[in-house]
Amino acid sequence: MTATDTRTPRYQRSDGVLWRDTGQYVLVLAPGDDGAVTLLGGGSAALWRLLGRRHSLPEIVAAFVDHQGTRPAEHEIADAVADLTARGLLRVEGARGR
């Protein structure tokens, strides 16, 4: 990844989300959720912690390897990221057409 690679989508927590981390689970409340607090556990919680800074999918996979010693399949990460994005929990930068 280079500084000029602006078309690769990069993901980061959305500023409008309220959240708390218990160490085991992360609770998140997205803007517009009608009082529905979402509980993230396992890989989703780890992903949330990681996305305090902007990362692309390959960077997320590499970070999982560094921090957890496991290499998740990139499609699993992509699904988890898509899920969090659909819930309004992540903002995306650099995606085509955005």
Binding site: L27, L29, V37
Partner: peptide, 19 residues
């Protein structure tokens, strides 16, 4: 853990009300 998760969920909803 269960009681703490309940307390945190309330805290988040209250913080949204605060905002």
């Amino acid at each position: 853990l269960e009681s703490h998760l309940q307390a945190l969920a309330v805290a988040l909803v209250l913080e949204r009300l605060l905002v």
